[in-house]
Write a protein that binds this DNA or RNA. Structure first.
Length: 734
DNA sequence: GTGGCCTCTCTTTTT
DNA sequence: GAGAGGCCAC
């Protein structure tokens, strides 16, 4: 039994249930003395466990008030889970600790001190979609062609600067060509637009808070004083601003406890710096450095294979994961012809796994890019196996949801220009580019919001009668809505706004499969509003709090309850999760490692991603590659991923696909616009003369397969011998 | 002002 | 192949 005496009013408490279940290394971390600590925690070594137990230990063992603890996690979901685990451990409700994402916590601080941070009280969070829109506007105002100045690159550039805490005003000027000068101009103009309209993007939330701390001694000291203990999860994925923020915040008590794994750093492309781990010891001299190397998740085989792959990276801090567990079965490697073949194999394996009595949600299919989910979905539907796809279109990023939120935002803040722009003509009410141009110009000249500009234009009859009627109709609608919904609860309010705005009717009248989903999403938004629970100590009204929360958790928001489904997700989203059975698909050069990553020199990050994927598996790991795969409407033949070759052969059981493979490396097959039908195949016989859009006339000399994958071999007079997907769009009998 | 066609692009993703 | 944005005709 461990009992710790400490000064003060609290009684020493029995904390054996907090320390006893831990191994030696974990216990050393949890009970680490005060001061800076760096815990290097390998995959499956009980990282989250250490964090939750450390918090419980501080509270129970040292009588630290939860109010004095701050913890950061990578996602909102992780924060919720951690909170739940702490409550279980303490066997009591747990309140007062600041636990959330960097963005969530910084946002909270900005809401408490908007003025000191140089923001209007009703500042608004813009997501990356809105940010892109704003950048487009800036480019247009600067008369820059989007072809020469791709908005996405501009966005990337701006966020890159902000993540590294570089303001446009502080960028080095002088040297650098016209291109660089213009980049700085775009950044500066963008900053100005945001500042003027009270808009704050994600990177800004962090940078603003850091600057608030740097520039305001009183506020800085309040928080430095308050947070006696700061704990950080996924430290390898913090960016420069986040690390600086942590350094400032922990300066007084120096109790910064960070947990991370340099081998699992997979967010370098969005500003994360693994180097933060390396510099921790330098920045915090005398830091307590601990290693967790015992893995409790995977079989010996999986672990050895993953270790072998990651060993190909240089510049690691180095650690060696080991397990007391069994060797387990070898890693299965399937060599598929095509992505359909790959999907069939995976789903077949899933079926037999389920037949053995396993739960479906114990299995996950992982891939490098979300687009790859399609084939698996098709096959799962065909075989009638329930599944769930993570990622892709996020709930709060869907257009219909953002439209609804824009109406809600206008109720709470008429002067929200970007909400005004978004829905002033949705559903269509006759306010087009022309009228919008007049409103924008008026707003610019008079330095007022677009709503205000509209009102003034109506009053002075500054627009055509038709536009005037439409615009005042819109303004009356919003004011009427505000009146009708006064005093209603969030859920009712949302439902009312959806009806009265005409959004419900608008989407109901749309035809097609997609439209039905939109109506469902809107209904889901109503229930999300109904179930919305605000955080403690919020200063805002319900509606504003709801809108902020929507912006800050674009990811989830949909009902969490999914019964027993096979899990499909990207390798990135799999971080932090574990499954008894894991498939990693699309193990091909160009796909994984991804071509763009290779060009950008981030092969090592791809390898870490592979390591993350492999270490998700507890009992069985299956990897697959397809020799031929459709990419952007063309069929490509790709060599196997180099990562497969990095796994020692003795841990691998190769499974070869039966059947035909006529492709040669590098060969490209063309397919036309319409999906190929058997009809096209039926129409063509051996010896037929055919014409191809690109290759001209030729003779059919071979045939293979049927249905979608029917192929013919054609000898073209000009282009020589080709294997082609048989589609009448490309290939016609002559 | 609206709707339909054409062209272009196409990682990863949470906030 | 698929979606998004731009351009042009009603």
């Amino acid at each position: 039994m461990y009992a710790i005496g400490f000064p003060g009013y609290n009684q020493p408490m029995d904390i054996s249930h907090i320390l006893d279940p831990l191994n030696k290394a974990q216990r050393a971390a949890v009970a680490a003395p005060s001061g800076p600590s760096l815990v290097l925690a390998g995959a499956g070594s009980g990282k989250t466990r250490v964090l939750t137990h450390r918090i419980a230990y501080l509270v129970r063992g040292h009588g630290i008030s939860p109010h004095m603890i701050l913890g950061t996690t990578f996602t909102n979901k992780a924060a919720r889970e951690m909170h739940g685990r702490i409550e279980t451990l303490l066997q009591a409700p747990f309140h007062g600790m600041w636990l959330g994402t960097f963005h969530g916590l910084c946002h909270r601080i900005l809401r408490l001190h908007p003025e000191a941070a140089g923001l209007p009280e009703n500042f608004e969070i813009v997501d990356s979609d809105d940010q892109l829109r704003l950048i487009r506007r800036v480019l247009k105002n600067l008369d820059l062609d989007e072809k020469d100045w791709p908005p996405r690159q501009m966005q990337w550039m701006i966020n890159q600067h902000k993540d590294a805490s570089r303001r446009s005003a502080r960028l080095p000027s002088g040297h650098g060509g016209i291109w660089e000068k213009m980049l700085h101009r775009v950044y500066a103009d963008y900053e100005e637009v945001c500042q003027k309209s009270g808009l704050v993007d994600f990177a800004e939330i962090l940078l603003r808070t850091l600057e608030l701390f740097q520039n305001n001694q009183a506020i800085r000291e309040t928080y430095q004083q308050r947070f006696q203990h700061i704990l950080v999860d996924e430290f390898q994925d913090t960016n420069t601003v986040q690390y600086q923020w942590l350094q400032v915040l922990s300066a007084r008590h120096r109790n910064l406890f960070v947990v991370g794994d340099d081998d699992q750093s997979i967010y370098g492309w969005r500003g994360a710096k693994v180097e933060n781990i390396l510099s921790f010891e330098k920045d915090f001299p005398g830091a307590n450095v601990l290693r967790l190397e015992q893995n409790y998740r995977s079989t010996g085989t999986i672990l050895t294979a993953a270790n072998a792959v990651i060993a190909h990276n240089s510049g690691r801090l180095g650690k060696n994961l080991w397990t007391k567990g069994s060797e387990g079965s070898p890693i299965r490697l399937y060599d598929a012809h095509t992505e359909d073949d790959e999907a069939r194999f995976v789903v077949e394996q899933l079926r037999s796994w389920i037949r053995q009595g396993h739960r479906r949600d114990e299995a996950a299919v992982l891939y490098r890019s979300n687009a790859q989910s399609r084939v698996f979905e098709q096959e799962l539907v065909r075989q009638d196996i329930p599944y769930r796809v993570y990622g892709g279109l996020r709930f709060y990023e869907r257009a219909e949801i953002k439209n609804a939120l824009a109406y809600l935002r206008l109720l709470s803040n008429r002067d929200s220009n970007h909400s005004f722009e978004r829905v002033v003509n949705l559903p269509a009410r006759g306010i087009g580019d022309k009228t919008m141009g007049i409103i924008l110009e008026h707003a610019r000249l008079k330095q007022v919001s677009m709503w205000q500009a509209g009102a003034e234009l109506i009053a002075e009859r500054g627009i055509s009668p038709r536009a005037l009627a439409a615009l005042s109709g819109f303004q009356n609608l919003i004011m009427q809505m505000a009146e009708d919904t006064a005093g209603l609860g969030l859920g009712e309010l949302t439902g009312h706004v959806l009806k009265q705005s005409g959004l419900f009717a608008h989407h109901k009248n749309e035809r097609g499969e997609l439209a039905r989903g939109r109506v469902e999403n809107l209904q889901e938004l109503v229930s999300a509003a109904e179930n919305f629970v605000r955080e403690e100590n919020e200063t805002q009204d319900d509606l504003s709090a709801f809108l902020d929360s929507a912006a800050l958790q674009a990811g989830e928001g949909q009902s969490e309850e999914w019964e027993d489904c096979v899990q499909l997700m990207s390798l990135h989203s799999a971080k932090g999760l574990e499954f008894p059975l894991v498939f990693i698909c699309g193990m091909e050069e160009g796909r994984f490692p991804n071509q763009k990553s290779l060009e950008e020199g981030s092969l090592e990050e791809e390898r870490r991603l592979c390591y993350v994927g492999m270490t998700r598996a507890m009992q069985q790991l299956v990897m697959s590659r397809a020799r031929r795969r459709w990419q952007y409407g063309q069929s490509h033949v790709n060599p196997a991923s180099r990562f497969l070759a990095e796994i020692p052969g003795e841990y691998v059981e190769r499974i070869r696909s039966p059947g035909w493979d006529g492709a040669e490396s590098g060969e490209v097959l063309f397919r036309g616009g319409t999906p190929p039908q058997t009809a096209g195949f039926d129409g063509i016989r051996l010896g037929h003369q055919v014409r191809h859009r690109k290759f001209g006339a030729g003779t059919v000399v071979g045939m293979e397969g049927q249905g979608i994958h029917a192929r013919v071999q054609v000898h073209f007079a000009d282009a020589g011998m080709k294997w082609l997907i048989c589609s009448y769009a490309n290939l016609e009998p002559i």
